[in-house]
Amino acid sequence: MGEETPWLDEEEQQTWLAMVSMFVRLPAALDAQLQRDSGISHFEYQVLAGLSMAPGRTMRMSELAEFAEGSLSRLSHTTSRLAKKGWVRRAPDPQDGRSTLACLTDAGWAKVVETAPGHVAEVRRVFVEALTATQRRQLREIATRVNGAIGPGKACS
């Protein structure tokens, strides 16, 4: 406890503040596009997209929460809203009665097919085209290292 905190130098602080700004602004930009064009949030899209890529368009809720980077509680509320729209249904996992499966319905698949082109165009505009191929590779490596330092996601919180 007696050690002094090593404060960020000017370059470290500028880099950190630029990243913090991006962490806030990028999700907000993606959310705004999805809300405007499709009437869904970025988190809802992540849930639908995750299910659309899963075998049988089905995932355990715990795995889906980890994929979408949300808590089980948040995912439960979200899947309830999506179920009311007919895009998702939940069912007990026949292989593990303690688990619940989320399944993308045909209507949910249609929503993903309708929504994905606009979302991908926005990701391409604000992210992919803003960086060179080398920068994207470097950023992927950086994100992997930072995520490793943070540790595994905690979908059950």
Score class of each variant (00 low, 15 high):
41 S>A: 12
53 M>D: 03
53 M>Q: 11
37 D>V: 03
41 S>V: 07
34 L>R: 05
35 Q>N: 12
26 L>D: 03
36 R>D: 15
34 L>W: 11
35 Q>Y: 12
29 A>L: 08
45 Y>K: 10
43 F>K: 12
27 P>M: 04
52 S>Q: 09
51 L>P: 00
31 D>R: 01
47 V>Q: 09
34 L>Y: 06
30 L>R: 01
37 D>C: 10
42 H>M: 15
56 G>Y: 02
44 E>Q: 15
51 L>F: 04
37 D>A: 14
40 I>N: 05
53 M>Y: 02
48 L>K: 08
52 S>D: 11
46 Q>C: 14
46 Q>F: 08
26 L>I: 08
32 A>C: 06
47 V>Y: 06
27 P>R: 03
31 D>K: 02
29 A>K: 04
31 D>H: 10
46 Q>L: 14
51 L>H: 02
33 Q>T: 06
49 A>Q: 07
35 Q>D: 12
38 S>M: 12
34 L>Q: 07
43 F>N: 13
49 A>V: 00
31 D>Y: 04
40 I>R: 04
56 G>Q: 09
33 Q>C: 14
49 A>Y: 08
35 Q>H: 07
34 L>H: 06
55 P>R: 14
41 S>M: 09
34 L>T: 02
41 S>K: 07
48 L>Q: 00
29 A>R: 09
39 G>L: 14
28 A>Q: 12
49 A>C: 02
52 S>T: 04
32 A>M: 11
45 Y>M: 14
39 G>T: 10
43 F>Y: 13
26 L>R: 04
52 S>F: 11
34 L>C: 10
51 L>W: 00
44 E>Y: 11
49 A>T: 00
54 A>L: 07
41 S>G: 13
56 G>H: 07
31 D>F: 03
35 Q>A: 15
45 Y>H: 13
49 A>P: 00
27 P>D: 08
37 D>P: 00
52 S>A: 15
44 E>G: 13
38 S>W: 06
28 A>T: 05
39 G>Q: 13
29 A>E: 10
53 M>N: 07
35 Q>M: 14
30 L>E: 08
48 L>Y: 07
52 S>K: 09
51 L>N: 00
41 S>T: 15
51 L>E: 01
46 Q>I: 01
47 V>E: 08
29 A>S: 10
28 A>K: 08
26 L>Y: 06
26 L>N: 04
32 A>T: 06
54 A>K: 02
53 M>W: 01
